[in-house]
């Protein structure tokens, strides 16, 4: 349990938005994640959570500091992480010309598994996510919640070691969001995956995570602690209040 699978050390990310203007989105970000841990990262909208997500996913290089996942740099050792990291995004990001099954299977297509094997795996995940009968439906024929389920199936299909989720339930209506959250939690518990969930919803973080990391603006750790076990709704609300007060302290920072 104590084996560090993700190590983020003093990371800084600066974007040049104009010839003579830079914006520091991440500054001095450090935390680590142990194997099998489920961590929730919370912070205000615009604090750089999604940039942090992209850095962990290896889609962007860090400006300073270092990120190591399984001892390797997710940006520099890009190919190493094929099928090792799965991602569930804020929006479904489904390819409109592919049906649900074809979308779910795309990660395996890139590693060239046989068509039968990859379709079998994708179908299994689509069915576990309650999409039986919708395998051949195109994204425009599915509801927002169903599309997000396909997005989740796509991430689970490659059987990644680490699962990253960026505000995966944030744009859905409350009922669908709660439903999907439950399914997601059940699946990550069953599969025992290391999971890092980025969210701006503290209640969501309390329900999903074992540990909470609160980010300030620019993106750096304000609080990093185990989420306690709550015996009552009042305790949960008090905890939420405390986290909110931590998030509220920060000012916007632009260099």
């Amino acid at each position: 349990m104590n084996e560090k699978i993700i190590e983020v050390e003093n990371v800084r990310k600066v974007f040049r938005i104009h010839r003579d203007m830079e914006i520091t989105v991440v500054d001095g970000l450090s935390f680590d994640v142990s194997l099998g841990e489920v961590i929730c990262i919370v912070g205000k909208t615009g604090c750089g959570k999604s940039t942090c997500f992209n850095l962990l996913l290896g889609l962007e290089p860090v400006t300073a500091g270092r990120i190591r996942i399984e001892g390797k740099d997710p940006y520099a050792d890009f190919k190493y992480f094929r099928t090792k990291i799965g991602a569930v995004f804020q929006t479904d990001r489904l390819l409109p010309w592919r049906n649900a099954l074809e979308n779910a299977v795309i990660g395996l297509e890139l590693v060239e598994e046989s068509q039968t094997a990859r379709e079998e795996t994708a179908l299994k995940w689509l069915h576990r996510l309650g999409l039986e009968g919708f395998e051949k439906a195109y994204p425009y024929q599915l509801s927002g919640g169903m599309r997000q389920r396909v997005g989740m199936a796509r991430a689970f299909t490659v059987n990644p070691d680490i699962l990253l989720a960026d505000e995966a339930f944030g744009h859905l209506d409350q009922v669908t969001s709660i439903q999907l959250r439950k399914i997601f939690l059940k699946l990550i518990k069953e599969t025992g995956k290391t999971c890092l969930v980025v969210t701006h919803n503290i209640r969501e973080a309390i329900e999903i995570g074992q540990r909470m990391i609160v980010l300030g603006k620019p993106c750096r750790v304000l609080l990093d602690e185990e989420i306690p076990t709550f015996s009552s709704e009042v305790q949960k609300s008090d905890y939420e209040e405390r986290i909110l007060s931590v998030i509220g302290k920060n000012e916007i920072y632009v260099s």
Partner: peptide, 24 residues
């Protein structure tokens, strides 16, 4: 950009990026 990032999260080769995303 969202779709490109989604596909890149699976680490495609340039040819796969072309055939799976750009061409369609």
């Amino acid at each position: 950009k969202d779709l490109k990032e989604m596909l890149e999260s699976f680490r495609p080769s340039r040819m796969q990026l072309f055939t799976k995303l750009i061409l369609p």
